[in-house]
Every structure is written in structure tokens, then in C-alpha cells.
């Protein structure tokens, strides 16, 4: 089956990101297709490129990246939710006159239309919330 995940919870604040990542790994291990993870609401913080969790804690951002690298899972971040919260890629940072940037590939800034499309094109959309 083709799955999509909607993640609304911030990493390390709520369990949602851990639940979603574990579910995502189990999905692909079972042979399902995980089309995309869409990060919305506080879930956008999962894409913060400067996150530096202690070594004895799971590195959630690296976990998402690995899913992309190994299984081609798209990592889509809601642009409106991200910009408000200070999460900008290089293009947006320069457009807004900011030094430095806080999101990079494989995380991609995109619109909510992608979320609606994902929900309608997948067999299942599973939401993990704060």
C-alpha cells in the first residue's frame, strides 16, 4: 500500500516525532511504500538542520534523512508554517535578507496543496500529533 504521514508535533517536545519515525521505519520494513512525510504545525521543527541532540538520544533529523536516502521518502515541509517559525532554506533566507539558513535538502519547503494531494493520492494518510 502507498502511505503518507502527516507530522504535527515538535521533536524532543512531544512523542509524536518518535512515534512517526518508528511507524515509518516499520512501514518500509513491511514492504509498504512511504510516499512522503509532510511536516506541518510544530512538526516543521523536525527539519531544523542545526539540531544537535546529545549522543545518547535518537537523532530524529538524521532518521528522516535516512528514510529519504534509503527509501526515497519525500520530506515536505509546509512553507508558511516553517517561515513563521524561523525555518528557511537558502533561497528563502536570501529572499528575506537573513544570514544563514536553517533547512536544507532533502527537506523541501512546499505548500499545503502538497498535503492535500498526498492525502488523496495515498491509500492511507496517518497523522502523528502533539
Amino acid at each position: 500500500m502507498r502511505y503518507g504521514i502527516l507530522l504535527l508535533g515538535a521533536p524532543y517536545s512531544r512523542q509524536a516525532s518518535h512515534s512517526a519515525l518508528r511507524f515509518a521505519r516499520a512501514l518500509v520494513a513491511k514492504g509498504h511504500i512511504l510516499d512522503s512525510v509532510f511536516f506541518y504545525h510544530d512538526g516543521v521543527y523536525n527539519a531544523a538542520r542545526l539540531a544537535a541532540p546529545p549522543q545518547d538520544e535518537p537523532h530524529l533529523m538524521d532518521g528522516w534523512k535516512a528514510l529519504h536516502d534509503e527509501h526515497g521518502v519525500k520530506l515536505d515541509v509546509c512553507i508558511a508554517a516553517a517561515l513563521r517559525r524561523g525555518l528557511l532554506n537558502e533561497t528563502e533566507a536570501s529572499r528575506h535578507g537573513k544570514e544563514g539558513y536553517s533547512i536544507e535538502a532533502p527537506f523541501a519547503l512546499t505548500g499545503l496543496g502538497q498535503l492535500v494531494d498526498l492525502g488523496l493520492r495515498c491509500d492511507r494518510l496517518i497523522t502523528f500529533a502533539p
Binding site: Y40, H41, L112, G113, L115, V116
Partner: peptide, 19 residues
């Protein structure tokens, strides 16, 4: 919280795409 606003935003975008 921003949940209401972000939920409404999803609704408006879906409607704008003809859903």
C-alpha cells in the same frame, strides 16, 4: 494555539484547488 488557523488554512487550500 495555531491549530485552528492551520486547520483552516488546509481547508482553504484544498478548496482553492477545487476540492
Amino acid at each position: 494555539s495555531s491549530l485552528l488557523r492551520e486547520g483552516l488554512d488546509m481547508a482553504l487550500v484544498a478548496a482553492a484547488f477545487g476540492r
